[in-house]
Design a protein around this nucleic acid. Sequence first.
DNA 1: TAAAATTAAATTGTAAACAATTTAATTGCA
DNA 2: TGCAATTAAATTGTTTACAATTTAATTTTA
Lengths: 143, 143
Amino acid sequence: MNQLKLENQLCFPFYAISRQITALYRPLLEPLDLTYPQYLVLLVLWESKSLSVKDLGKKLLLDSGTLTPLLKRMEQDGLVIRQRDKADERVVLVSLTEKGITLENEAKDIPFKLASCLALSMEEFINLKAQLDKLMETTSALK
Amino acid sequence: MNQLKLENQLCFPFYAISRQITALYRPLLEPLDLTYPQYLVLLVLWESKSLSVKDLGKKLLLDSGTLTPLLKRMEQDGLVIRQRDKADERVVLVSLTEKGITLENEAKDIPFKLASCLALSMEEFINLKAQLDKLMETTSALK
DNA sequence: TAAAATTAAATTGTAAACAATTTAATTGCA
DNA sequence: TGCAATTAAATTGTTTACAATTTAATTTTA
């Protein structure tokens, strides 16, 4: 088997599916004026009131080079507030505005709508998720 | 189960793993002066001598807005040649230079090196690939 | 305690991605 | 034939990613 053939690659499907999934989110997120990475930030903030850029980056596997401009745009859109931590001025804490909090309710159908696009049975979903989580653990450890 | 929790998402792992894999490729591709998307273009061109931008895009699921600047950079780096199709001047045919052809030999170990990073058994690899191919078919059809 | 090391964000610069539009060539059909 | 529709790339503009560096604050340690 020729390992240099595109069709024999495992990595290409990850690259392609990731972009395809983002494309599926687009029409669902567009009414909320969100991009997929912005939506991910909100997912995290809906779980925890306030988080440092650092901790946000740990959850999303993104660095400040990506997060700083992204969060600034979200701040401009009135979704989040960025403020220096009084206890440690190096840290910037990100929290939701009222508008950001409100958006959770408008977004609550999105996971179901998206899941239905993927046409997976519950069993397939769980099975695939387990494999992805395992792989993610492997790749994260190699950082 | 709260579907809006990051950890319950199927899509986030795709997004994250895709970027992690690209990060694993980086040190392998850096000696060849290639980015991951550029490497994908070469994978396709190593299989077929010459291809239109359109057909390249079909294989990689990328449009001309992404491919045109990417191919121009590869042309500048002396990896490919871009020339209008004499039979249909709308079409731009992309083919490899001598340097681009030569690179195949230098890249032949990369798939194995990368596969070893992922720490999957042959069975897991095949199983996962099948699931990804199926999912890719689903998402591609929704375009 | 003062300098060195570390840490957290921000900044700079480059390369993807992609929607939307534009340009130019070809096709189809009235 | 000739003009409208279609097609293929290119262009424009915005947003991600990320390496590498810089800035500023905090910790460590000599």
